[in-house]
Amino acid sequence: MINFNGKLLDATNSNISYANRGLAFGDALFETIRVSGGKIFFWEDHYFRLMASMRILRMEIPMNFTMEYLSEQIFSVIDTSEKSKTHRVKMLVWREATGKYTPNSNDIGFVISSVKLEESFYTIQDSSYEIELFKDHYVTSGLLSTLKTNNKVINVLGSIYAKENDFANCLLLNEKKQVVEALNGNLFLVNGYKIKTPPISDGCLNGILRKQIIKIVGTMPDYILEESSVSPFELQKADEIFITNVITGIQPVSKYRKKEYASAVGKELIGKLNAAARLG
């Protein structure tokens, strides 16, 4: 089942118009949300990111788009018997209008879908996870790159490149040749007591898990977190590299070119992240 503008439909029989602006012009946003045990992880952060992004894109926010209303819409696509399980929920919001580049209104439509996940808690995967730089195309630093829009062609091409070359993931660069993020998450480098992540101003996604990791590290006296630009040369100097997103949690990188990495800090953070998820 999917939730289409507040109505439950069979996913196999639902249709979106060819004139949908998200399809035709990439005029859409989305949130990928983890729901477990009847709780939406970091729901407040997701909600306010969505509202802020809609305002930046000049979408009209409906009066009924409260946290409570959208929470109800999210749970509506999860079968009652499955609500104690864990789910990956995707909410897509687009400008519901005709017109070409200039829409004739800023009203919105939305669809919510759900897929069941196996793990109830975030876990660390110790399997091999080799990465490489994707240098065919660049992320543009600036506000629009920080939004979770459906303009993800670079991520698609990078994912194809990774698959063709047997890499688990790739890192994206901006036009200044700074490392911005991974294909599917934010990036953190560990070097001794310092944990470093690219700043939002470099064009990385304003990630929900990024925010949580920054908050958690701020409570750990043994580490200092730094938000500053990352050069490709720094990757091989790091003791540890990990990638974060709201579905996986923390994904340690095992290898980049000839450098192999530890995962001690990632393992130290995962328990604290699970605790934050249950509280937040």
Rank of each mutant, 00 (worst) to 15 (best):
F4G: 02
N5A: 06
G6A: 06
N15G: 06
S17Q: 07
R21I: 03
D27V: 00
F30C: 10
S36F: 11
G37T: 08
I40L: 07
H46N: 01
H46D: 01
Y47G: 08
Y47M: 06
F48S: 00
M51A: 10
A52K: 15
A52N: 15
S53N: 12
R55G: 06
L57Q: 13
R58D: 01
R58F: 05
E60D: 13
E60H: 02
F65P: 09
T66M: 04
M67K: 14
S71D: 11
Q73K: 15
V77F: 10
K83D: 01
S84G: 11
K85R: 13
V89W: 13
R95S: 04
E96S: 10
K100T: 13
Y101A: 08
N106G: 01
I108T: 07
G109S: 15
L117I: 07
Y122C: 06
E130K: 09
E132C: 06
L133I: 15
K135R: 09
D136T: 08
D136S: 14
H137R: 14
T140M: 05
G142N: 09
G142A: 10
L147F: 07
L147D: 13
N151V: 05
N155Q: 14
V156S: 01
G158D: 08
G158M: 05
S159G: 14
I160R: 08
I160F: 03
Y161G: 11
K163R: 13
D166S: 11
A168R: 10
A168V: 00
N169K: 02
E175V: 14
K177L: 09
V179D: 06
V179I: 09
E181L: 10
N184G: 03
N186G: 01
L187T: 07
N191W: 01
T197C: 09
D202R: 01
G203Q: 04
C204N: 11
C204R: 08
L205D: 05
G207C: 05
I208P: 00
L209N: 00
I214V: 14
E227V: 01
E227Y: 00
S229N: 13
E234F: 04
E234Y: 02
V246W: 02
P252M: 06
K255F: 03
Y256W: 14
R257Y: 13
S263K: 10
A264H: 10
V265R: 05
L269R: 05
L269V: 07
L269G: 05
I270A: 08
A276I: 00
A276G: 02
A276T: 06
A277W: 11
R278Y: 11
